[in-house]
C-alpha cells in the first residue's frame, strides 16, 4: 500500500528543496557521507574519521573553540561597527551610545570583549595541547608554524581592538604597548611610527588600528586559518597514537 504523502514529504520531495539539498535524511551511511561532501561548510571534514579523533578529552575542543570564538567576534564585531565611529572626538561617545542606547548594544560589546580575551586563552591552550601530545611532529611541522603565526595574529587582533574604546584604559595600555615596540633595537623609531602614525597617539593611530582591527588582520587570520584547516586534512587528520 502506498504511504500517504505528508507535508514534510512534499517539501523534501519538491524540485526547490532538491535543488538545494543534495542528500536524503542522514540515517544511511550513504546519506551521512553525502551530507558532509555536498555542504560547503561541512566538507571541511572528511566523511569518516578515526574514532580517537572524536574524543573530547584529547583535543578539549580548543582549536574548534578558537575558531568558534573568531566567528562570534566577526558577528558581534560587524554589529558594533554599525555604531562605532573611529574618530578621537566621537569614539568614546559612540561607545557610550552602544552601551546605553543601542538595543542589545551592551550585550554585543560584552560578548565581543570576553570572546576576544577567551580567544587569546583558547589559542594559547590549543598550542599547549598540540605540543604536549607531540602533534607538531612530521608531517605536521609546517602546520605548527602556521599555528604560531595564528597565535601572533590573535595577539595583534586583540591588541588593535584594545585602543578603540578611546578611554583611559585603552589609551594608556596602547601607550605602554607601542613604547615596548618602539624599544626594538635599530628599528625602534620606525616601528613606533608604523604603529602610532604620528609623534603621539591620536587620530592617525586610531584610524590605523581600526583598519587593522576590522579588515586587515581578520583577513590575515582567515587566510591563515584556511591554510591551517586544509593542512590538518592533508597531513592525515588530527594526530593520534601510532
Amino acid at each position: 500500500m502506498r504511504r500517504e504523502q505528508t507535508l514534510a514529504d512534499r517539501i523534501t520531495g519538491s524540485a526547490v528543496w532538491r535543488s538545494v539539498v543534495r542528500h536524503g535524511y542522514p540515517d544511511t551511511q550513504r546519506n551521512q557521507a553525502l551530507i558532509i561532501a555536498s555542504n560547503v561548510f561541512l566538507h571541511i571534514h572528511p566523511v569518516k574519521i578515526k574514532r580517537y579523533a572524536t574524543k573530547v578529552t584529547y583535543t578539549f575542543c580548543l582549536g574548534g573553540l578558537s575558531f568558534f570564538m573568531f566567528l562570534v567576534l566577526v558577528m558581534t564585531g560587524v554589529l558594533l561597527m554599525f555604531y562605532y565611529v573611529p574618530s578621537t572626538d566621537l569614539a568614546y561617545q559612540s561607545m557610550q551610545d552602544i552601551e546605553a542606547s543601542v538595543t542589545f548594544g551592551q550585550l554585543m560589546r560584552n560578548m565581543h570583549r570576553w570572546s576576544a580575551q577567551g580567544m587569546v586563552i583558547a589559542v594559547f591552550l590549543h598550542m599547549g595541547r598540540v605540543f604536549y601530545t607531540g602533534s607538531y611532529k612530521p608531517p605536521r611541522e609546517f602546520n605548527w608554524v602556521i599555528g604560531v603565526l595564528l597565535l601572533v595574529t590573535t595577539f595583534l587582533l586583540s591588541f588593535t581592538g584594545y585602543l578603540l574604546p578611546w578611554d583611559q584604559l585603552s589609551f594608556w595600555a596602547v601607550t605602554v604597548g607601542t613604547a615596548i615596540g618602539g624599544a626594538a633595537p635599530l628599528l625602534g623609531q620606525y616601528v613606533n611610527f608604523l604603529l602610532v602614525g604620528d609623534y603621539q597617539i591620536g587620530q592617525n593611530t586610531l584610524v590605523r588600528w581600526y583598519t587593522l582591527h576590522v579588515i586587515f588582520l581578520p583577513l590575515i587570520a582567515a587566510f591563515l586559518m584556511a591554510v591551517h584547516f586544509w593542512r590538518i586534512r592533508k597531513d592525515g587528520g588530527i594526530s593520534g597514537p601510532l
Partner: peptide, 19 residues
C-alpha cells in the same frame, strides 16, 4: 568503515555542535 573509524556525521558533528 574500518574497525577504528566512525562517520563524521553524526559522531564528530554532534560533539562540535554540543560544544
Amino acid at each position: 568503515l574500518a574497525e577504528d573509524e566512525v562517520m563524521v556525521w553524526p559522531s564528530l558533528v554532534v560533539v562540535e555542535a554540543v560544544s
